[in-house]
């Protein structure tokens, strides 16, 4: 019960950081998203030992673990683009499939190749 309460409080803390980040982005007219500002702020606070990692850990674990759920409504939103899907959907999908395969192979193989040469370190 205590653990559940702790997780909920930590999730609320992350929501708070997100809101603050959005305000900063709007106020300073930054060309980047609130999530990147939020990551930077949280990371800096952890790195500077202002906050301890235990204060955010279980909330972070839950949010990341259930991330897929948060994308569902956006995907369902595709029903608003019926005509686009009917007209160009097939070609758009083929483009995305081929391009994504190219990106994955390029990124993955470059890192694997470089890692092997430099004796990549994985803890």
């Amino acid at each position: 019960m205590k653990k559940l309460l702790k997780t909920i409080l930590q999730i609320i803390a992350f929501i708070g950081i997100a809101q603050i980040s959005d305000v900063i982005v709007q106020w300073a007219h930054l060309p980047i998203s609130g999530s990147i500002v939020g990551i930077a702020i949280t990371f800096a606070l952890l790195q500077l030992k202002v906050i301890r990692v235990e204060w955010l850990e279980s909330g972070s674990k839950w949010l990341i673990g259930e991330m897929l759920l948060f994308f569902i409504p956006a995907i369902v939103g595709i029903i608003n683009y019926r005509s686009l899907v009917l007209h160009s959907g097939l070609w758009i999908t083929i483009t995305i499939i081929c391009s994504t395969i190219a990106v994955m192979l390029c990124a993955g193989l470059v890192v694997q190749r470089l890692g092997r040469r430099n004796k990549e370190v994985v803890s």
Binding site: I11, F14, A18, V53, L56, G59, I64, L69, E120, V121
Partner: peptide, 26 residues
């Protein structure tokens, strides 16, 4: 639910912090 995408992305800062050494080395 969509509103939770951002907090979840920010939560990655914790993961990042915990694996900083691996990232630095690579």
């Amino acid at each position: 639910l969509t509103k939770l995408v951002e907090p979840a992305t920010i939560a990655l800062a914790v993961t990042l912090y915990k694996h900083l050494d691996v990232l630095k080395k690579n």
